[in-house]
Design a protein around this nucleic acid. Structure first.
Lengths: 233, 233
DNA sequence: GCTGTTTTTATGTGCATACATAAAAACCTT
DNA sequence: AAGGTTTTTATGTATGCACATAAAAACAGC
């Protein structure tokens, strides 16, 4: 066996992936330690470390101090979805983006929304409904609740020409968020706005973002029937 | 201003994130270079590099050689979904997993499936339909096409007791794949198996995996109505 | 045998240094 | 001024070394 040399971490990574895919290292197997691999590959341990760390991030390796590195028994595929501003998303498809605000009001939300904002019982929130269009056709329906405080520095903003989706992403700091994907049947109102038959299956994204412990905004995006989001593994 | 010291890359990362969130560094801003930050933070440039690289991976920073590092103008949220074996997914919810094979045959697929396998025009593929149940209730319907060659080493396998989902993930090497999420209306057959009303909105995952240039398998997973996948941002 | 303690060991990380590389900026040349 | 070439510079990465840390394994005491 010709002990080949792999000088940079990318080629070490490639070789490690090759061995995993070729089942030279099978799921559950303990692989040689960093020092040994470094010697075999003719590079520094740091380089091996960098490569193994990258592979571990993708979910194909499990690493634990002292216990060593082993090929994941349950290879968890990590699909990374890029969630961009909707305008950008549409434009990247080569389509013309337009935006239409449907409604904007300050009202006291129902108990469910209220609960997730942990706000005082009957304090009102901003509620925006808007439509995102691609080449004139409905692309996504945005239904959003916003903590009024986040608009304190932009008192005039009514999201008539710029979407809350875009404005918030650019102007509002947040520390963490949660996102969920599901399928829903369009209600009559929703179907009318999306110009699709009632009860159509619509792809749905629910997102909530917080700044520290304060809920900033909560949004439901209903995409026109047929919408699909894709990514590589 | 007390020039604080940040000795490890995690605290440098935290500080960088703080500055971005606090809008001390605004979207589009060019931030100081690594060497300057290293001096400010009282650590080595490698440490700053590690921290900035991590933040850049999350999409909040754009880095280019010579051009420097800037806060992303269009902060792209990267949502990483963990796609595990369905059995594990169910068990992790604390539910009892059961599996039922619905059908298994070797037939020549329609043109669409055929095309994605790039196989000879009329060569037959394996077609498996199976149901995954959680606590006895339908959880997901799996509709899968498999290249017969991948079963060459397991001639007896008919996916009667172990799902193709699990068997393939454990036994079949693959180099890359594609995954897509969408919403679909359940057909009559599908609804019957999932025990839901016809035309219910069902969350759908389509996945294709390749080994080098050969298509290994293609699967469509229809989840019972109400299914939602979630992740943190 | 069963505890709790110590040792060992593989990964995790920090640092100084060196060089690689991409791309902006400066400098020519015509 | 336009176009091509060189320089500069910020990031990217490899290396040897040191030490930190978590956890398995060995050991001790009872």
């Amino acid at each position: 066996m010709t002990t080949q040399t792999f000088r940079d971490w990318q080629s070490v990574q490639t070789e490690v992936l090759r061995r995993i895919h070729a089942r030279e290292w099978k799921p559950g197997d303990l692989i040689p330690n960093e020092a040994d691999l470094a010697q075999e590959f003719g590079c520094a341990r740091t380089t091996v470390n960098r490569a193994l760390r990258a592979v571990a991030e993708s979910g194909l390796l499990d690493r634990r101090r002292k216990a060593g590195t082993r090929v994941a028994a349950q290879p968890i595929a990590k699909a990374t979805m890029n969630i961009a501003v909707i305008r950008t998303e549409v434009e990247d498809r080569g389509q013309t983006y337009t935006y239409r605000r449907v409604s904007f009001e300050k009202i006291v939300p129902d108990a469910i929304i209220q609960g997730s904002f942990k706000t005082g019982d009957a304090s009102p929130l901003l509620h925006v409904v808007a439509l995102h269009l691609a080449d004139g056709a409905p692309y996504a329906l945005e239904d959003r609740w916003i903590d009024p405080n986040v608009l304190a520095n932009a008192p005039g903003e009514g999201f008539e020409t710029i979407s809350a989706n875009e404005w918030l992403l650019k102007n509002t700091p947040y520390t963490h968020g949660q996102i969920g994907f599901s399928a829903r049947s369009a209600t009559g109102d929703q179907a009318a706005l999306l110009q699709c038959p009632e009860a159509s299956a619509v792809f749905t994204i629910d997102r909530t973002t917080w700044d520290q412990d304060k809920t900033v905004t909560q949004v439901r995006l209903l995409f026109a029937p047929g919408h699909k989001i894709q990514t590589q593994l």
